[in-house]
Amino acid sequence: MQSDKTIQAAIELTGVEKTFGRQKVLANINLSIAAGKTTIIVGGSGQGKSVILKHMLGLVRPDRGMVEVFGKDLVRASKKELNQIRMEFGVLFQNAALFDSMTVYDNVALPLRERTKLTETEIRAKVREKLDMMDLIESDDKYPAQLSGGMKKRVGLARALVLNPKVVFFDEPTTGLDVSRSNEIYRLFHKTQSQLNYTAVIVSHDVPKIFKLADYVALLAEGEIQGVMSPEAFQLSDHPLIRRYVEETMGPIYSSAKEEAGLYESA
C-alpha cells in the first residue's frame, strides 16, 4: 500500500480558473499534490496562493476546471460528501483563526466534540496529547487573545492535527513570527509529520528556509503553476520565471554543474 499510495496524487487541480470581479486571479492551474509528501507553493504576494488553497478546501468554487481530492471532484460533491472529505483535512490558517471566545482547550476539543462520538474523558486524553506535543499543556485554560503569535499558531496546529488528518494545509505558517519562533513551527511540523505521516500543502513566503521541509516546490506566477519540482531542481531551473523568482528571493545561485560545465569539458 505504501509504495503505491506515495506516488498517487492526494489532490489534483486540472485547468482551474477563477475570476474575482474583473480580476482574473487563476488563469489555468494544473497541480498535483503527491500523497504523503510535502508540497510548497511559492509565489509573489497577491498571486493567488491562498486562493488555490481555498479551492482545495472547497471554500471557493472554480469558474472552470476540476479539483479532485482522493479522486473525488469537490465541485460536484454534495455537502455531505464535501464534509466527509474535509474530515480528512487539517488547516492552519494564516492568523490561526482560533475561536476567540473559547479557551485553548476548547478550541482543540471542538472538532472532537462536534465530529466524533467520543466521550469527554477520551476527548480530554486526545486534546492533552496534542497540546503536549505542542508544549502548550500549561496554557490550556487561556484565551487566544492572551497568547503570543507563535503560541496561537501552535494552538492552530494542535487543532488542525487533532483528528489525525490525512492532509494538512498551512497558509503562511510563519508569517509575522521571528526567526526562532518560525524555527519552532518548522520543528513541530517536522516532528508531527514524521509521527502522523500526513500529506502537507504549504503556502509560504519564507524562501529559502522552507525548502528544507519540501519534497516538491511549485511556483505560482501569472495565474499558472510554472512547474513542480524538487527544491534542488527548483533552484537550478532554467525556466525563466522560476529563475527570476529564485534570484529575486535568494540572489544568484552558484551551481558547479552549470557554471563550470564548460570548464570540465575543456579539461
Partner: peptide, 25 residues
C-alpha cells in the same frame, strides 16, 4: 457583530474546514 468578527477572522472558514456546518453549529 459576533458573527461578523468570526467571518472577518476566518473563524467561519475554519469551522467549515473542520466539516462543522456553521448553519447547524
Amino acid at each position: 457583530a459576533e458573527i461578523g468578527i468570526m467571518r472577518n477572522s476566518e473563524q467561519i472558514d475554519a469551522l467549515e474546514c473542520m466539516a462543522i456546518d456553521p448553519y447547524k453549529y
